[in-house]
Design a protein around this nucleic acid. Structure first.
Lengths: 155, 155
DNA sequence: TGTAACGTTTAGTATTTACAAAACGTTTCT
DNA sequence: AGAAACGTTTTGTAAATACTAAACGTTACA
């Protein structure tokens, strides 16, 4: 089943984005398909045909995406085995995981600051800058996500 | 020149964070050193001794960090060649680059939406969700960074 | 009951990547 | 001029990674 050119382009772009973020490109391609596919739910075989990729890699990458909370399995009426679809709220979860990384960095810089506590302030400044940024993000970013959800709910 | 245990731990944690973000761990370690080193500016040789790593990889990774805007070269009075130090505002730049990725994803999802424009709304919903999130971040995140800088300036 | 379809897992492979070692060019000091 | 110190570049390598192909187990239907 060959895809129109623009759809392939879109799918590949999502793949490239995932690669930029340090994940396998194939995982991004799967997500790309599941973002625009006409039945939103697709089987492993469907995906492997659309992407012209092996079922094994689709199977593994789909599992990765499930772990990341971006897609989910759905039961199918048709007695074919299992279907995957984009998980509502998946991007929010994705952002929350990213936020977790920032929070971790906040902790690390805090520990770092205690290491150079006795040093003169101008030496602590650069680490303080990092600390302040990441603690600020940890504090303020959740409100941003909430504001978005509120906005979406009201539309 | 061996480092106290806690400092090594801090440095390695920054390295691991970088790895999580899809960058070479050694680049993170260099940044880790430059965040707590007592003369903030360190030469390639200094860094390679502290990290017990080859000068070649330090040289290459330092260049990578310069390209990323996280560190910068500074002239040295001592006639040794060049020194690197953490770049003030480097983290802000780092975040702005991250924001650029989100903005790119906004564009991609917008193109994606035009591909499925004629489909029923419930099919467009999942991509709309992605689009709204990333366009929201593109809009609101810069204000967050500005708020941080304002807050820091006033302290 | 046997066979076909599906997904998973294992094994194998080609590419990329992160490093180190070595060779190189430049500058500084004697 | 010669040697030493520094950083860069090139070359080499071991490990990780992203895939494919093949083997496998399970379910469904003929």
């Amino acid at each position: 089943m060959s895809q129109p050119f623009e759809e392939m382009h879109f799918i590949e772009d999502i793949g490239l984005f995932f690669e930029q973020m340090g994940m396998p490109r194939m995982a991004g391609r799967i997500l790309g398909v599941l973002l625009i596919s006409d039945p939103p739910a697709q089987s492993i075989t469907d995906l492997s045909e659309k992407l012209k990729a092996s079922k094994s890699s689709i199977s593994i990458m789909a599992r990765l995406l499930v772990e990341n909370g971006l897609i989910e399995r759905v039961a199918s009426r048709v007695p074919r085995r299992d279907y995957y679809r984009f998980k509502p709220g998946g991007w929010i979860l994705y952002m929350e995981q990213w936020l977790g990384l920032m929070a971790a960095l906040h902790q690390i810089t805090e520990r770092g600051l205690s290491l150079i506590d006795e040093k003169p302030p101008e030496l602590k400044e650069r680490l303080q800058e990092a600390h302040d940024l990441f603690s600020f993000i940890e504090e303020e970013f959740p409100a941003l996500l909430e504001a978005l959800q509120k906005k979406r709910a009201s539309e």
